[in-house]
Amino acid sequence: MHIVDALSDRAGHGSIRMLDPRLRIMAAALFALVVVSLSGLATLFTAVGLALSVMLAARLPAGPTLRRMAAMDGFMLLILVLLPFTVPGTPIVEWGGFTASAEGLVKAVEILLKANAVVLVLLALVGSLDAVTLGHALARLRMPANLVQLLFFTVRYIGVIGEEYARLRTAMRARGFRPANTLHTYRSIGYLVGMLLVHSLERSERILAAMRCRGFQGRFHLLDDFAYGRADALFAGLTAVACTGLLMMDLTYAAAV
């Protein structure tokens, strides 16, 4: 089934968008596994290059995508900066009694390259799926049904709860509430969160009641007709070649060193 979702396909339709979602998830997972097992810098640069070309093939907008990557790199910055100083080895810089080692620097660069390659491919292959299609694909890949349903319920109701929050918040503002560092503020926010929990619990009871009215007896059913096509076979082949290539390159590189 082609699930119509106007919002998720905002970035154009590259050829990768036409591939079977199950294949995209498996290819991304395989690529991630291969990349984290690599050790040579040259191979890692190749992996990043591959990831970039997948990003281009998926026609992800380069600007926003790279900004997302930068946000992730920001999280790792502290570790990356500290690594050269904590890994022992050949000193390259000395600063105020701390020495940075070449080995540490190489480690930091490796981690940076691995993380970026994996995240790029995830964004290109899986990030461009909308949540509903992702759930269907995961279900067909034999993920536990309860986890898939949790994903679906989250996707379905996070917006509803968000709207409820916005309504309560607006109602508070309409009565002159302005958050400040006061006991009154904390108490009011506490009431707000508590009320959201109560509403959500009551809603979940109503949803279950509505489900029981339609004969629910604990089993969920999904309708989809994913089917692998010729393009999928081609892409699977390319993925296999790329991953084997990376592994072989890494082995020859390691042997040469």
Binding site: M1, I3, V132, G135, Y157, R203, A210
Partner: peptide
């Protein structure tokens, strides 16, 4: 919102 909980309209009607 209490009644429609499936991902797609077709699945909700099929439920």
């Amino acid at each position: 919102d209490d009644q429609l909980f499936c991902p797609t309209v077709a699945e909700d009607i099929a439920f």
